[in-house]
Amino acid sequence: MKRASLRYQLPLFVALAGLTVVNLIPVIWALLISLKQPVDAFAVPPSLIFEPTLEFHYEIWFERGLLGYLVNSLIISAGTVVVSVTCGTLAAYGLTRIRAGRVQAILIGLMAVRMIPHLLLAIPFFVLARYFGLIDTHFVMILALVAINQPFTIWLMKGFFDDVPKELYEAATVDGCSIWQAFYKVALPVVRPGIWVAALFSFLLSYNEFLLALVLTGPNSKTLPVAISEYGAEDITYWSLSAAGSIGIILPVLLFMGVLQRQLVRGFAAGAVKG
């Protein structure tokens, strides 16, 4: 029995390992470029033996001010996560407790809003932000990202609330809990892993946003994706700087996932099991 199971699992493991390696090739290549001098980074054939240097990492983060843009990205991402997850969790709980056919229509409407291309929303957001004097502020980016990502958060959290046994709500009602008390005493502890999953996706969506950041930010609130896009063109030295910045962008995400690894695994597992 174990041999048969291993026989079926081994090809799957090999396939997943191969897929992982393929996905990591661009990251590894960018890391190598960031550690090489341009003459080695763009040599043909590629130079496998070279003297590594951290010159470009130091230059882009400390001499060219990318550290400040990282702070902007973290402020905007953290604000988006707090507002989006809080509002999305409350909205999802409310939709779960409503016993009416209009809930499905609301969910479909939310998903329709999420499907609108960002390019169509960038100009209206820019016009409104300029009218209220919010251009080049963290606040307007947080508002825009919450508006765009909120439907996804609501859909995600509603799936977790739907998996909470109804018997728990009935027991809470028998014990005299109000709807609000049932939320934070009964439902919230059960869906806590799902909240961390929603926080992760909200963080990734806001942290990697480029188009809205390009339109709505300026020198005071520019984010990392916009700042790094300025390096490139014909000067091959800029490509080494861009590679160094790209590797630096990944580190906060890896740190976030590493710290919350246990909660994220529980959340993904809970979301994958129905009934």
Rank of each mutant, 00 (worst) to 15 (best):
A4K: 15
L6Y: 05
R7D: 06
Q9P: 01
L10Y: 10
P11G: 01
P11K: 05
F13C: 15
V14L: 15
G18W: 03
L19R: 02
V21H: 01
N23K: 13
N23C: 05
N23V: 11
V27E: 04
A30V: 15
L35C: 07
K36R: 11
K36D: 01
P38K: 13
D40S: 15
D40I: 11
F42S: 07
A43F: 10
A43M: 07
P45N: 11
L54C: 03
E55H: 13
F56T: 01
F56V: 02
Y58N: 12
E59K: 09
W61T: 02
E63F: 01
E63M: 04
E63T: 03
E63H: 07
R64W: 15
G65L: 15
L66V: 11
L66E: 13
I76Y: 04
A78C: 05
T80I: 03
V82W: 04
V83L: 07
V83G: 00
V85P: 02
T86P: 10
G88P: 03
G88K: 00
A91R: 00
A91L: 12
Y93D: 04
R99Q: 07
G101E: 15
G101K: 10
G101W: 11
R102K: 09
A105Y: 15
I106M: 10
L107W: 00
I108W: 12
G109P: 08
G109Q: 09
G109K: 05
M111Y: 12
A112Q: 02
I116G: 06
P124T: 08
P124L: 09
F126E: 00
L128V: 13
A129C: 14
G133K: 07
G133H: 10
I135K: 05
H138R: 08
F139D: 05
F139R: 13
V140Q: 02
V140M: 15
V140D: 03
M141D: 01
A144W: 06
F152V: 00
T153D: 14
L156F: 08
D163R: 11
V164A: 00
V164Q: 00
E167C: 00
L168F: 10
E170A: 14
A171E: 13
A172E: 03
T173A: 14
V174L: 08
D175H: 00
W180D: 02
W180L: 13
F183I: 02
Y184G: 11
L188F: 12
P189Y: 14
V191R: 07
I195G: 09
V197C: 10
V197A: 07
V197I: 07
L200G: 14
L200V: 13
L205M: 08
L205W: 14
E209G: 01
L212S: 03
L212C: 04
A213Q: 14
L214H: 03
L216M: 10
G218N: 13
S221N: 07
P225T: 05
V226K: 01
A227V: 06
S229K: 14
E230G: 08
G232H: 03
E234R: 09
D235W: 06
D235T: 12
D235V: 12
I236A: 14
W239N: 04
W239S: 02
A243S: 11
A244G: 06
I247V: 12
I250W: 00
I250S: 07
L251R: 00
V259W: 12
V259Q: 05
L264K: 08
V265S: 12
R266I: 02
A270M: 15
V273A: 07
V273E: 06
V273H: 05
V273G: 04
G275C: 04
G275Y: 08
